[in-house]
Amino acid sequence: MKILITGGAGFIGSHLAEQCLERGDEVYIIDDLSTGGMDNIRHLKRHPKFVYYLDSINNVQLTAELVDTCDIIYHLAAAVGVRLIVESPVNTIETNVRGTEIVLGLAAKKRKRVLIASTSEVYGKRDHVPFREDDDLVLGPTVIGRWSYACSKAIDEFLALAYWKEKRVPTVIARLFNTVGPRQTGRYGMVVPNFVRQALSGQDITVFGDGHQSRCFTHVSDVVQLLIGLAEHPDAVGQVYNIGSNQEVSIQELAYRVKALAESPSKVINIPYEQAYEEGFEDMMRRVPDISKIRGLLGHAPKTSLDEILYSVIAYERERMTPGFAVSAAAHAL
């Protein structure tokens, strides 16, 4: 098949590109490198079925050509990460909503199949877990910038479902829960790579808040397999699916597990949210997905354990700290 991945130089996009290439697909990516990076795809550049464009999906002419060329579009381009969302709310809203509008509008002309990557953030402040795809969404006030991301991704979902209902564009929505693995950056607030890098360098491992907030972490290799399964399954069209693990862990416990697995002398310390982000910052206390719907469709769900996930990130970050990492990693991948 011919595959288009928007945001393909990002963490998840680059792993998805690898998986598609391994099974023989032609892969086209477009990425403006605002949160992605060339290091994520450098090892793919020599592959005969890999084509990349360093540009924005707001370049409608180029994006239209790519949409026309490909059979399936994975729309992963988005503003991501709590820190980026808090610091750049205008960019967050415009990037997410405008980009999705462009992709869906172009896909509608040829009724190309589109998978929209959404987020568990859309569940907002719900305190009843696990989260089901048909649950009500509970967002915070508009004066708290954190919720602009959740709202913008909810609009993306409404747009995708509207294009299916009104224009018969075959769309499917994947709500991702805390995907982690090698190549993820901690620059925008992602907790696992930040904890691992702090542990390996002997710095304090910084937990925001009291650490009682909990998350469920999923390895990127599990996520991309499920994304491909959703994008290609005829019964997934017009539906929303959670993608995540239901293995819940508190952030405080996560910090101590990283410390132990990395055999680190680092101390675990707590920092108030106001110091880490901004005054009045609100967090989701629990994020646990109900994954029965995707398991019922595809027959499987994420299987990588939390310790295996952490070991993979620790091994990657250790190698990354060695001289000549970029060269050796690319050579190994090729």
Score class of each variant (00 low, 15 high):
Y52H: 14
V90N: 07
E319L: 15
E94T: 15
Q252H: 06
Q239C: 14
I173L: 05
R318S: 10
I3L: 06
G229T: 15
R126M: 12
I269M: 08
P302R: 00
G81I: 10
L176G: 00
V224Y: 08
E101F: 11
A231G: 03
L310D: 09
T69M: 08
E317M: 11
L54S: 06
E22D: 13
F11Y: 01
A78V: 12
Y241Q: 11
V288R: 06
V313A: 09
V27F: 08
V196E: 02
Y123E: 06
R286Y: 09
R83W: 07
T304G: 02
Y74V: 03
S250M: 13
T322Q: 15
E317N: 06
Y316M: 05
V172R: 00
R98H: 09
W147S: 01
T119Y: 01
E319V: 01
V114Q: 04
D136P: 02
G299S: 04
A331L: 10
G105Y: 01
F131I: 06
D127H: 04
G7A: 04
V60D: 02
S120V: 11
S120W: 02
T179P: 01
S88M: 15
R183P: 04
A150R: 03
G36N: 07
V51W: 10
K167R: 14
D307R: 10
Y256C: 02
D71N: 04
V169M: 05
W164A: 06
L230A: 11
I173T: 07
N246M: 13
V172Q: 08
S250T: 15
V143E: 05
T6R: 06
T304R: 05
A107C: 12
K109S: 09
I102N: 00
V288G: 03
N242V: 13
V67A: 00
E166Y: 10
D31M: 08
K293A: 11
E18W: 13
S221V: 09
S152R: 00
A174Q: 04
H233V: 12
V129Q: 01
I72W: 08
N59K: 07
D204F: 02
T100D: 03
Y277K: 05
D25C: 13
Q19N: 11
A162G: 07
R183L: 14
T92N: 14
G81H: 14
Y241F: 15
S266A: 02
M285L: 13
P130R: 01
A17Y: 07
G299E: 10
S152L: 07
E18L: 13
Q225G: 10
A17V: 00
A329H: 15
A315V: 03
T35R: 06
H75C: 14
